[in-house]
Every structure is written in C-alpha cells, then in structure tokens.
Amino acid sequence: MADLLSQFAFIFTSLDFYAAVFRLTTPILLVAMGSIFCERAGIMNIATEGFMLMGAMTAVVVTYYLGSPWLGALGAMLAAMVLSLLFAVFVVIIGTDHIVTAVALNVFSLGTTSLIFRQIFGAMSRTPDITGLPIWRLPLLGDLPVLGNILFNQSPLVYLAFLSVPIANFFMFRTKWGLNIRAVGETPRAADTVGLNVYRIRIYTILVSGLVAGLAGAFLSIGQTTIFQEGMTAGRGYIAYTAIVFGKWNPLGALVGAVIFGFADALQLRIQALGMGIPYQFALMIPYLFTVLAIVFAVGRVSWSAAYGQPYRRVERSVD
C-alpha cells in the first residue's frame, strides 16, 4: 500500500505528467469547443466520434501522399466536414433521430476508415513512414523555468485548443451569431418567427463541429503519434460530449470537464508505463470510469432546453 502511494506521489510530482495532461486534454477540448455550438443550437451531436475517426484516417493518408502534415490536417478537416454534412442532411433536413443517426454514422465511419486504410496500406506490413505535426517551443514563454516545459513546448494544436475556449465563449455570449444560435436551440419556433433560418443555422453549426472534430482527429493520428489504428478515437467523441454536458453547455465549464478527462487519460498512461501491479486493462478503464462518475455525480440539468435533441419542423407533419 505504501509502495502504491509512493508511486502515485511519483506520478503527481513529475512535470512530464502535467505536460501529458495538456496534451491529452487537447483532442477532447477541441471536439467540445467545435460541437458546443451545434449542441447550443439544439442538436445532440455524438457523431463527433465518427468525424474524429474520419479525420484521423484522412490526416495520415493525405500526409503520406502530399508529404506535409499541415495539408494532412486540412484534409482531415475537409473529410470530417463532408461526413458532418451527411449528418446534417439526415438530422436537420430529413429529421431523423439524432442519437440513432449518430450511432449509425459512427459505425459507418469505423467501417469506411478501416476499409480505406487497409485498401491503401494493406500490403505494407508496418505503418507508413510520415512526419507528424511539429512541436512549437514558444519564444520567451518556452524558456520559463517550470511552466515553460509544461505549457509552452507543445504542438500548435494544443495552443489552438486552449485559445479556442475564450474565443468560443466570446462568440457564444457576446456576438449576434451566438445569440441566434442560442435562440434556435432554446425555442426554434420563436426563432423561426422572428426570421431566423433554423435549418440553416443548425446545418452551419454541425459543419463547424465536423471541421473542428476532423482537426482533433488529425491531432490524434499525426499530432501525438504518426500512426492510424482502427477505432483509435476510443470514445473520445463521447467523452467530449460528456465534457459539454458536465460543463452545462458553457465553454468554460466544458474546459473543466475536458481537463478532468485529460487528467484521467494521462494518469492511465502513467500507470501503464510504471506497471504498478495493476492490469493494464484496469488502467485503460480509468478515463471511462471518470466520465461515468462525472455523469453520475455532477449532472444536475439533463438538457438545457426542451427543444434539445428534437428535430424541428416548420409545418407539423400530418398523420396519415
């Protein structure tokens, strides 16, 4: 027992651990900041899992053929956006159930990504040789004694993720667009009456969520590592959704949620690395366990408006 405690103390006192927390928070935070707008516009979007996976696969493929990880990230964003357009067509225009559609799209994404990847790289015994996104050591800030290595010696996407929080917060609560989005989510009927195009706003916010989730997927495959594995997102889209719910649909709250799950992920990696006599499967469970516990203990409000997760129709469909 004392041994275990000292090992945990070792984990929590190492600076690398905190750098890992920031790194592992990034994909979750990015997805959360991208999809918080469509959540606020009334779309329950758990399809980000599939968008991320599509982004992760596309990033590796594009980087392999064009040689630039930046183009890879761009390709990832576009591919995920195409998938999110499909989601938007089903959910907004046809008016299907958000959850079932999202689950189907996630399965679709799992199938297509592994199909395409096997088709392209199937003959190779090992993963393609590509260069990932660089690490930017920020001038001045990167030379700070302790914080420099933790905070300012990371991939540019890490900075982008944390910068996106105040941006999203400003956009959501201080601009007309943010107000429109919130109105559409709160009471679509009223928003429609004052002349907002509910369908259009919902579609745009879904496209944004796809774009950003694609970037987060690219971070997983060419930011942290340079490989793609089938189903490598491992539920991060769902975890990001939980971060939003945990944060009561506010960007700052979602940041807290994302950091908690990033912390759990980093802890899991360290426990695996140290061995510690805990089977690795239990270590891997830690992020999911944290997420479930966060749902059990922290969620007060279940959804933020009555129209949340419901398809919107201007004209009620006649029953026939």
Binding site: I94, V107, S318
Partner: peptide, 29 residues
C-alpha cells in the same frame, strides 16, 4: 474484401431505414 465492409452495409441500412420513415411523407411536407 475486408469484412469491415459489413459495418458500412449495416450503418447504411440503419440510415436508410431511419430516412424511409420520413421520406414517405417528404414530398407533401
């Protein structure tokens, strides 16, 4: 042919079944 193809078939079937409930009313709507 990789057997993951059935994931694609499966997902497409779910999507089309979902859509078929709605598209029947689509034109009138």
């Amino acid at each position: 042919i990789p057997s993951t193809l059935i994931y694609v078939i499966q997902a497409l079937i779910i999507l089309f079944v979902l859509a078929s409930y709605h598209i029947r009313f689509g034109w009138r709507w």
